[in-house]
């Protein structure tokens, strides 16, 4: 009899503990799915939801505040996404807030991002419709990346030709880098110019002491002082 009672108690404890674990698991999952929280509903109309599914998160200021509760195709090019959002967040979401479909990380699940509106605007009400912004899809990003990489490839190719020409001594820069005679000529030319400029300066100094030019130079100095 004692043994039977002991067995019964042990079975009872085992059942209670394991059922509690199950119930706790259900509770914690439900809590994250806003099952036991007070919520309000808003919706947004999108042209393309990019694989968003019922149950995906709704994120506001980086916090998961709700879930996507329903997705309806309303016309051939528009989809209504209904969101169930925690009531505690309602006071922070304004009428002019916008919804955008994003991704959790680079490879994560799709989610709806609610971008805050202006602070002076009225608070959003139950069953309101949020304005939506068309998200930049991965395909569009890839197309842009492709265009950019093609341009970069073209630029690299041109640069390669230029560098090749320079190395072969073609063109002015090429001659400058490779042809030592050209460089010597250029150096000599620069020396000549420098000497010429020095001579020219001496001539000009001499001219300033010339009787014929003295009057003209005085007049010029006066004009400069007046300014």
């Amino acid at each position: 009899m004692k043994k039977t009672t002991g067995e019964r108690v042990r079975v009872g404890v085992f059942v209670v503990v394991s059922m509690s674990l199950f119930v706790a698991c259900i509770y914690f999952i439900g809590q994250r799915r806003q099952l036991f929280a007070s919520t309000f509903r808003v919706s947004g109309i999108f042209n393309d939801i990019g694989g968003l599914q019922v149950g995906n998160s709704v994120r506001f200021s980086g916090i998961n505040v709700g879930i996507v509760s329903n997705i309806d195709q309303i016309t051939d090019s528009t989809v209504r996404v209904e969101m169930s959002i925690n009531s505690h967040t309602q006071k922070y979401i304004k009428k002019n807030a916008t919804a955008i479909i994003g991704t959790d990380g680079l490879m994560g699940n799709k989610l709806v991002l609610v971008v805050p509106g202006s602070p002076n605007e009225k608070v959003i009400a139950d069953n309101d419709t949020l304005a939506t912004t068309r998200p930049v899809s991965m395909d569009e990003i890839l197309i842009k990346v492709k265009e950019t990489s093609e341009n970069a490839a073209g630029i690299t190719k041109d640069l390669s030709v230029i560098v090749h020409n320079i190395r072969m001594g073609k063109g002015t820069i090429g001659k400058l880098f490779i042809d030592s005679a050209f460089a010597k000529n250029l150096d000599a030319t620069l020396t000549n110019i420098k000497q010429g400029a020095g001579g020219f300066k001496q001539n000009m100094d001499a001219a300033s002491h010339n009787v014929f030019l003295r009057g003209f130079l005085k007049k010029k100095k006066k004009t400069e002082k007046g300014n």
């Binding site: 259900i26 914690f28 999952i29 809590q31 994250r32 799915r33």
Partner: peptide
């Protein structure tokens, strides 16, 4: 764990 596990898993 609980952000990932759904009713459809349990």
């Amino acid at each position: 764990v609980f952000n990932t596990v759904a009713f459809s898993d349990v």
